[in-house]
Design a protein around this nucleic acid. Structure first.
Length: 181
DNA sequence: CAAGAGATCATCT
DNA sequence: GATGATCTCTTGA
């Protein structure tokens, strides 16, 4: 079953952990690509210096202020796209970055191919700036709950990647991943 | 293996 | 005009 808007209205940290084990689905032509989410990062509000919205509301960050479940896709380093999903209430800029997935064939059996890194995830799913502003409840992109529960003990917390400039915020343990058994 | 540089561009100053 | 929520390739130990 698809995750609904209420899931993304949770606190960003909670939703970021909750996304672990869920399945990202993207329709590409007549095929549906699926990947189980195994790594996420939370970006939370204007006070989080690592969050793009810390610089305020601009044309670029506008998407972060939209309703829960909106896709925030943007180009970074001139060559890679990053996929995020907006969380919490409208006008509060927060999102979850999808960092890694494990390819899933057909139903739920993982076939062990891991796609690590936001850029690779987007390349695999064919995500580019045209996805920016869509929501994850449509028929182009959505997220499924296949019933897999990840217990809090299994979740590894660590510092976010590539945010050294974010002063004290760089040390927040807002990156979450787990090891598939 | 670890470390460094290059690629490449939308966005903000 | 600078820079980044990255990746890949090259270098050298």
């Amino acid at each position: 079953m698809k995750l609904g808007k209420d899931f993304f209205e949770q606190k960003t940290l909670k939703a970021a952990k909750g996304l672990l084990g869920k399945t990202l689905c993207v329709k590409k032509g007549n095929k549906i690509l699926r990947g189980m989410i195994v790594e996420t990062e939370a970006y939370c509000g204007e006070d989080d210096l690592a969050c793009h919205a810390s610089k305020g509301r601009t044309k670029r960050t506008e998407t972060l202020y939209k309703k829960a479940g909106t896709v925030y896709a943007y180009l970074i380093y001139g060559m890679h796209y990053c996929l995020n999903i907006v969380t919490e209430k409208e006008n509060y800029p927060s999102a979850i970055l999808i960092r890694s997935v494990i390819k899933v064939n057909g139903k739920v059996s993982p076939c062990h191919e891991r796609i690590s890194g936001p850029g690779r995830v987007c390349r695999h799913f064919g995500i580019d700036k045209t996805f920016n502003g869509l929501d994850v409840f449509g028929k182009n992109i959505w997220i499924e709950d296949n019933g897999l529960k990840i217990s809090p003990r299994e979740i590894i917390k660590s510092k976010r990647i590539g945010v050294d400039y974010a002063k004290h915020c760089k040390d927040y343990l807002w990156r979450f991943n787990f090891v598939l058994k």
